[in-house]
Every structure is written in structure tokens, then in C-alpha cells.
Design a protein around this nucleic acid. Structure first.
Lengths: 141, 141
DNA sequence: TAAATATAGTTAGCTAAGCAACTATATTTA
DNA sequence: TAAATATAGTTGCTTAGCTAACTATATTTA
């Protein structure tokens, strides 16, 4: 049966997590997607980061990051300036509005994380991390 | 760090699996997506199934299945007829062309599955399955 | 230094997922 | 049985992911 397959379960769980998180954000009246939050968070933790580096941290390709960054800029959450030392590059920072959003978001994101994972022991988290990494390594050969 | 987070790893692994599988299919010159294959497979295992039931088995919503089914029909892999007992429903079956595709696909899909999972013991597969289910259950509360 | 190559980012085209609103047919229930 | 409700499927809108092809700027190398 397809539903017993490990791949299927990984994919299903990933989808369920995104869906659950999105619903929580929506229920709080917050106009941002989980993916957009991830980008915001990376920029927040890495002042003046460029798009390539955001993509590397989130393991997303260039066009995906490009569109998400432009989207976040349009929403006024981030500021995008051209690098003065290398004009191919962009420097991304969080705007005042973005900062406010992040401060609102942190506790909610923590709650989302907690909901799915609170019944997992540290040992279990470690085990699942190890197994997932093993799978990715096999696929990267 | 974001990359140590269990959610992030699940999502990343899911993406990597899809990506790897798609590349293998492409390299074999097979014009089908992993998602389309999943739908084909469900129809193949459940003669005359309708779209709602396909959606339930794959945990996808109605519009997603509707579009994928229409896509597969256009490609000539499946046949879609209106149910004679309930004209709201549809009856999905695999066409001759679809059957040929499935027969070609089975060994390739097995190989894809094997690549990522062959170094996992049965015990590990069981453990990861249990943990993933636990996460989903927490989110469904 | 001029030409070739590498890097950063964008645009276009595709598939898929999700939600909401819709049509059409079946079933319930008042 | 007529009206209300439930079910199956479709359409429209949005976001995201991927590939390929493109522009522009930097860096290498011949």
C-alpha cells in the first residue's frame, strides 16, 4: 500500500505541517505565508545577506527566492538595496514594519513548532533527524 | 539555527525526494511527474475509482485531483467516464497507453525508492513512520 | 587588456497545492 | 413531494517550486 511507504509519509507530513502552520497564521489574521516567514527569518539573522545566500540557507533556487523577496519588498517587510561593492548583488534588510511583524510572529511560530513536536523526546528528534539526513545523503550520491 | 529544526528537515527531505525522482524519470525520457504517477497508481489499484476517493488516498483536495485527472486524461493515460448510477461521480480507469506507461514505470519507481531507503533498516523505517505519524496526530488535534 | 567565463538576479513557462465560490445532481427531512 | 442539505466535480485566484534562457556585472585567463 502506498500510504505505508516512507516517502509518502514524509511528503504527507511536510504538507500537513505547512497547512497547519498556515491555518494558525490565518486565524491570527497574519498576512504572511510560512515560506515568506522563513525568508524573513534568514534575513533577520543575517544582516545585508544577498539572495543567493538566502537560497543556500533555505535550499531553494534563485527564481524562487527572487520572487519571494520581491513579494516581501512589495509588502513592505524588507528593504532591498544594490550592493555598493558588487552591483550584481543585492543587500536585504528587514524594515521597521518587518521587524514588528517578526516580533509578532516569533511566539506564534514557537507555538506551531511546539504543537507538532512537543510529544517528541529529544532522542526522537535526534533519531528522525539522523534518518532524514541519511535519506538525503543517499539521494545526493 | 533553522536547519536543525525538525520541520525544516522534513520539508527539505520531501522536496529532495520529489526532485530526485523527477530527475530519474526525466533522464529515462519519461514524460510524467511523480505526482501524476501517484494518481495513476491509485487508479490502477482501484478499478473505477472516483476523484474524491483518489483524493482521500493521496490526501489531496478536490481541485488538485480534478486538475491532475484532466491532465492525465489529456495525455491519454486514463479514461474518465460518468458513473451510470450517480451522474455526479466519475469513474476512472487506466487506458492501454496508461498500462504500458505503468509497466515501464514500476521498476524505475522501485529503483528510486530503493536509492533513498536501501540503507535504512526495517527498524529505522518503522521508527520514522511512527514519529511522523505522531507529528501528524499532534497537528490534527 | 581583450575575450572568455563565472556569478547574481530576473523573466517566462510549467506543475502543483490550497482556498473560495460555483454548477449539477442526489439525498434528507418537513 | 417540495425545500433544504449534502456530495462530486470544476473554475478562478494565489503562492511556490523547478528548468531554461536571459541581462548585467565581475573575475579569470590567454
Amino acid at each position: 500500500m502506498i500510504n505505508n511507504n516512507t516517502y509518502f509519509q514524509i511528503e504527507l507530513t511536510a504538507r500537513r505541517i505547512r497547512q497547519y502552520g498556515q491555518n494558525v497564521l490565518k486565524s491570527q489574521g497574519i498576512d504572511i505565508t510560512i515560506e515568506q516567514w522563513l525568508v524573513m527569518n534568514v534575513i533577520n539573522e543575517n544582516e545585508s545577506i544577498n539572495q543567493i545566500d538566502v537560497g543556500e540557507k533555505l535550499v531553494r533556487d534563485k527564481p524562487t527566492i527572487s520572487r519571494m523577496v520581491n513579494h516581501l519588498e512589495k509588502k513592505g517587510f524588507i528593504i532591498k538595496t544594490s550592493s555598493s561593492t558588487d552591483s550584481r548583488k543585492v543587500e536585504l534588510t528587514i524594515s521597521k514594519k518587518g521587524e514588528t511583524m517578526i516580533n509578532n510572529l516569533y511566539p506564534i511560530i514557537e507555538k506551531i513548532r511546539f504543537t507538532g513536536l512537543n510529544e517528541l523526546s529529544e532522542k526522537e528528534k535526534e533519531i528522525i533527524g539522523t534518518i532524514l539526513m541519511k535519506i538525503r545523503k543517499n539521494l545526493d550520491k
